[in-house]
Write a protein that binds this DNA or RNA. Structure first.
Lengths: 195, 195
DNA sequence: GTCTATATGGCGATAGAC
DNA sequence: GTCTATCGCCATATAGAC
């Protein structure tokens, strides 16, 4: 009975690329080489399938960050690892990234709350602790948000930035992104760091 | 014959909220109080209507940035105005923001090129010039991308960040966002600026 | 330019055999 | 657990009258 898992895996890919309305149960059934009736045997309706697919996609990434917050690292090193890990995950697992972006657009408040609790909250709390150690800012929540926003949107905008002046291929490499983001976070736009 | 414009205006709102697949020609026709046949009189098919709606939404914002790059301002002041203006536009015109996010997700390379040329390129070039004046970084393109990414994604993540620890209502005010982003850009995460 | 009516096909979901 | 067949509805798009 890993039909069900196979369906979920496939659904994640399809939903992340074409959205809820853009994927029909027929499309999905064809992709997993089954009849629609067989798919409906595993999920009560399309909405339920979508929610399970979402949880499935997010659960896979839950423990990608485990190595980041180890107690015996400096705050600076923790931040470096987090930024690097986030860039890595978002670049590698394109389905996850697109699913997340789509949820940010389409989710109602209830699903947004779920996303916050199940996917973000733990990492966000760790990140806030690290920022408190590194900075005197009173805007810890906002600073943490900035870190995540920077990494997410840089990767999200890659397909666009390719067509803007000054683009270079290395701008899309994970290590380059992580290094530049960290430099910006530590030194601001002046970038007097390692250059 | 401003039926056509009225249809476009309505289409922008619907498409930005529910996406291409989520809006039927019937929905749209009902929203503008016409028959679907009347809508089809103005647009050859749904795809063409979508593309015209996209151009319509983006054209409205083209000259929102006119006051930003005035020659007699300091580079720092230009940057401040750009960040503030961008935050203002994205907060005020929710349809525009969502449409842009959706295009970043759904557009193929051709539409991405259009988006780059018609919407971003001019502002992006100005922004790169300003960054060159403010900074010694060799990564001007990347830094410019960071500025835009920061503002866009902070606003995009507001609905989520509401459910994360440490959130405060003032985090969603345009002036607060602009001020904090500028501080981060100039001083990094330490935020030793005006605090 | 707008309508009513309709052609044609895809949609979510179910019934019932195996 | 999977299939074929089908229900009832909604989709895009068009024909032709006014």
């Amino acid at each position: 009975m890993d039909s069900k898992e196979y369906i979920l895996q496939t659904a994640v890919t399809l939903f992340s690329r074409q959205g809820f309305e853009g994927v029909s149960m027929r499309d999905l059934a064809k992709s997993v080489d089954m009849s629609t009736a067989a798919v409906y045997h595993h999920f009560s309706n399309k909405q339920a399938l979508y929610l399970e697919a979402m949880n499935f996609a997010f659960a896979k990434q839950a423990r990608a960050f485990d190595a980041v917050w180890q107690a015996d690292l400096s705050a600076h090193e923790k931040l470096r690892r987090f930024v690097s890990c986030l860039a890595q995950v978002l670049t590698t697992d394109v389905d996850f990234r697109r699913f997340m972006q789509r949820e940010l657009l389409d989710a109602d408040d209830e699903r947004m709350q779920l996303l916050a609790k199940e996917v973000f909250q733990e990492q966000f709390s760790h990140l806030m602790t690290v920022i408190e150690q590194l900075s005197e800012t009173q805007q810890v929540h906002f600073s943490a948000l900035c870190v995540i926003a920077l990494v997410c949107d840089i990767i999200q905008m890659q397909a666009l930035s390719r067509h803007l002046p000054g683009w270079q291929a290395e701008h899309e490499q994970v290590d380059f992104i992580a290094e530049q983001v960290l430099d910006l976070l530590m030194n601001g736009i002046k970038g007097d760091g390692n250059k």
